[in-house]
Every structure is written in structure tokens, then in C-alpha cells.
Computed example of a mutant assay.
Amino acid sequence: MAVTGSNGKTTTKDMIASVLSTQFNVTKTHANFNNQIGVPVTLLSMEPNTEVVVVEMGMDHFGELDFLSRLVQPDVAVITMIGEAHIEFFGTRDRIADAKMEIVHGLKEDGTFIFNGDEPLLQERAKEVSQHQRTFGLDDTNTLAGSDITTSRAQTQFKTSLWPNNMYTIPMMGAYNVNNALAALLVADTFHIRPAAAQQAIASFVPTENRTEWLTGYRGEAILSDVYNSNPTAARRVLAAFAAVPTKGQRIAVLGDMLELGDQSDALHMSLASELDPATIASVYLNGEHMRALAEVLQEKYPAGAVHYYQTDQQPQLIADLTATVSADDQVLLKGSHGIHLEKVLTALEAAPEK
């Protein structure tokens, strides 16, 4: 089976592999080896007794998913959502949706297309797909709808329309992760996995390293690290989740440039201001050339001295300023594209101060 989407595909892949492993011998994409090299590597690494292979598929140009889908020929194809990732190469979300829909080009005639039914761009394009279709989302018109969502630092709980008496738990914060879980549960149902087995598998799945995770800094501060990748949709979602987590100290957001946004980059960086409120996130540290646009907007809504901007090559100064400020009761969010290397900030927060 094949999984793609602007956000959530690696987490969804991990969840799907977990639920299917309750009944089948499963091979899944390692880490995020999801390109024209990684997908063949996944197929060639299958053990002889593999019954289901869960293949994550990524793309940043037209034709790439067409090639991967025809190579894999999946029985089930999943699209998690449509965001702005790689919009530099496509121009609009409509064209990103067109490219993501290539995942059904290799879908078997008797296969199943599972997609986010809350996304109008996918609903419209799914009308051209002849294979069986099932949808997930928060709207109750979906095949599987989520509801009653509660989230904390360590986990998120929710109920579903198909199994309303069951409370599902995933070991991750953020209501945005519910859709990933719903996709996995719908795959489980498609493969006739017992609901109780799927419920347990979702609760105990292990996400790929470097995804959103809580860590503890040297001073005792709580660090929400999400330094692998970033795009506007993902950043807004994690900011909203971070702002809702209770803390005794201050919430501090450290944001790095979101790459591959093209001509819309400055405007999309500025859009993060909607999720940044001094009442919930006390101070903001921004790193990268495009974050300058967000810094200028935030200066108007934050008190003096609460917004700190650093050019890309000024990250060492950011680290010095941040580590001199953070205290044991604080919570720190790290979110940026991997090319900005906020993992260096994480390393500094976890390390003992130099004497």
C-alpha cells in the first residue's frame, strides 16, 4: 500500500504499519526514504515472508508520484492532506493536489483510494477516480469521522463514528495527528483488522525519530522538538498545539525558515502570526532570511524585547541569547526546515553550559 500527503505521511505510514502488523508480516519505508531511490530500496528490502509493504511516497515535481505508483502498483493508496509544502515548484495548492493525485495512477483496478474528505481539492479530484473510495476527517459525512478530541503533552484521545464506544489514544500531542490516526484506522478496517487490535496498535505505535517529540533540556525546561521539516500548515498546527499545553513558566517559540515556498515565501511566513499571541507564547526567536517578514509583523503585536530575529548565519547568537534566558519551568518549541539546522539549538539546550 502507498501513502503520500503534504504533511503527516511519515507518521501515518508508521501508524498503518503498526495496525497491520497485528495480523500480517509487514515491511515499511525506513525513516522517510520516500523518493525514487528510497521506494525501490524499500521494495528490495522486503523479507521473503512479507505480506504487506507500506510505502511512503514523496514528491516535489510532477510525474514523480506517477512513476512511484506505477512501480509499486498498490492495492490501497492514501493521501493525508494537501498543504503548501514544495509550493515553490507548483505555484498553487490546486497544482499540488494534482501532483498528489498521481498516487492513484498505479492503483489496481480493484484497489481502494483513501483520502482526507475534509479537503475540497481532493473531493473534486476523486470524482475522476474509478476505484473504491473511503474518506476520513472531522466532518461527519466522512466514512470515518473523528470527534471528542482531547490532547495533552504526552497524548491525544478521540472517538470515531464507526466505533463510537471506543476511546482511541495516540502517544502524540496535537489534534492534527487525529487525521493521521483516522487514516490508519480506515486502512485497518479495509484489511479487516479487529477494532480492538487496531485500537491497541495505535496506542503503542513508535513514531519515526526526529518527528515532533518532547525532550528535557539541561536546565529542566520542556522542549518540543520538530526540527526535521516545516511548512506553513504544519507550523501553524504545532504552534496551536504548543500554545494549549499547560506550563508553570513561559512558552518560547524558536522558528526557522520554511524552505521551498518560492515567490509566496514571505507572505506564508507572515501567516504564522495568526498562531502567535503574547498571551500564550511569551517570546519568539526567529532564524532565517524569510523569517524577517514574520518578525516585522510580530513587532506590532508583541511587547518590546519579546521578538528576537537572527539571520541564518547568526544562529550562534540565537543560541547564546536563548540559553541565557530559558529556565526550568519554561517550554520551548523548535520548528523549522532541516536546512536551517535547528537541531544545533536543540543540542545546545540539552548540553551543560560551558564553564
Rank of each mutant, 00 (worst) to 15 (best):
F158V: 09
S147G: 07
G174K: 09
S147R: 11
L162H: 03
M172G: 06
S161M: 06
S147M: 05
I170K: 10
P164K: 13
T151C: 11
A175T: 09
Y176C: 05
P171R: 02
M167I: 14
Y176L: 01
T151P: 00
L162F: 02
K159C: 12
S161P: 07
T151S: 12
T151M: 00
T169L: 07
D148E: 15
T156L: 00
Q157I: 08
N165A: 14
Y168E: 14
M167A: 15
D148F: 12
P171L: 13
D148C: 03
Y168R: 14
T160G: 04
A154L: 10
P171Q: 14
D148A: 14
M172A: 08
Q155S: 10
P164G: 04
I170T: 09
Q157A: 12
R153A: 13
N166D: 11
I170G: 01
N165C: 05
G174I: 08
S147Y: 07
T156K: 00
T160N: 12
S152V: 00
L162A: 14
M172L: 14
D148H: 11
S152M: 00
G174E: 10
K159L: 00
Q155T: 14
P171N: 11
Q155M: 12
T156M: 05
A154M: 11
S152L: 00
F158Y: 08
N165Q: 15
Q155I: 04
F158G: 03
M173C: 08
T169M: 07
P164Y: 10
I149W: 03
G174T: 02
D148M: 05
P164F: 10
N165Y: 08
S161V: 05
S147H: 11
P164C: 13
W163Q: 12
G174D: 11
Q155R: 10
I170Q: 12
Q157V: 09
T150S: 07
W163C: 08
P171A: 04
G174S: 09
N166H: 10
M167T: 11
Q155Y: 03
Y168V: 07
M173F: 06
R153C: 03
F158K: 04
N166K: 13
T156F: 13
T151A: 00
N165K: 15
A175H: 12
Q155V: 02
T160M: 14
L162Q: 12
D148K: 05
Q157E: 13
A154W: 06
N165H: 15
